[in-house]
């Protein structure tokens, strides 16, 4: 192994070298964790505390809470996708363009202000959770979808026009069907933000459970082991969703070669 190449900018390393570097980093992180938690005073919980926290969470129904969080996310995602797609696909229609632009700009509104008005409109706390997520997610989703639509080269529109497509056919073929794989990718990017929002949103209704509620409860009792274990669980579930969506996109759309 030529270690000099490891620090040479833009160097393409062999697979074996890349694997060794990854292992090295994991080992360094673990070593740092073990060393910094070995003494009296410690910033992080020890691996044993995290393991105990994980075991306690499991016995308290961690799987059910994960299910609750995923269900909340799924409900919000489905509604958000439908709303966002309708608004984003209306962008090429001149009359509706200001609407889609305005919806994208609304992402700068603070969430607290939105929840204030939602509490007036919605009485059920679970519905409230769903709609806070829907609004938050949709505004970002619309922004990303508009970027995808604006990036479509004029050549693709002209190509469809030269094949006698009327304007609605162009919308359908070039924008809707032609960029459907991008919708999944946009969803993937935005789900990461939504997943991060869980803690805040799930704290609205503690009785409904969820990973956010577990974190909040652990936080209250300063149970570091549990908090750390939960962070790992949330990260792993999030990464699994990300992987599933990316794999789904690649397997459903063979022509989708980005990323």
């Amino acid at each position: 192994m030529n270690f000099k190449l490891w620090v040479k900018p833009f160097e393409n390393l062999a697979k074996k070298d890349r694997f060794t570097i990854s292992i090295l980093w994991v080992a360094m992180v673990l070593a740092y964790w073990l060393i910094t938690t070995a003494g009296e005073k410690k910033f992080f919980p020890t691996p044993l505390q995290v393991w105990q926290g994980f075991a306690a969470l499991y016995s308290e129904g961690l799987v059910v809470h994960i299910g609750s969080s995923l269900w909340l996310c799924l409900q919000a995602t489905v509604i958000s996708i439908v709303v966002s797609l309708v608004i984003a696909y209306s962008y090429p229609i001149p009359l509706l363009r200001p609407l889609s632009r305005a919806m994208s700009q609304l992402r700068y509104l603070p969430l607290t202000g939105i929840t204030f008005y939602l509490t007036i409109l919605v009485t059920n706390a679970r519905t409230m959770q769903v709609w806070v997520l829907v609004i938050f997610m949709s505004l970002y989703f619309i922004t990303s979808l508009l970027a995808v639509i604006k990036d479509i080269p004029q050549e693709e529109i002209d190509h469809a026009r030269s094949l006698k497509c009327n304007r609605w056919e162009i919308l359908w073929e070039v924008i809707v069907k032609g960029r459907f794989d991008y919708v999944i990718d946009v969803l993937r990017q935005n789900l990461a933000i939504t997943w991060m929002m869980l803690v805040t949103v799930e704290s609205i209704l503690v009785a409904a459970g969820g990973l956010g509620v577990l974190i909040k409860n652990s936080d209250k009792f300063m149970n570091h082991g549990r908090i750390f274990a939960l962070q790992i669980v949330i990260l792993l579930v999030g990464l699994s969703i990300d992987y599933t969506l990316n794999t789904t996109r690649k397997s459903l759309f063979r022509y989708s070669k980005f990323n």
């Binding site: 080269p153 050549e155 693709e156 002209d158 190509h159 469809a160 030269s162 073929e173 070039v174 069907k177 032609g178 459907f180 794989d181 759309f253 022509y255």
Partner: peptide, 11 residues
């Protein structure tokens, strides 16, 4: 019309 990039429907 065939443009310089030979644009086709990608899907």
């Amino acid at each position: 019309f065939v443009d310089q990039k030979y644009t086709l429907f990608r899907h």
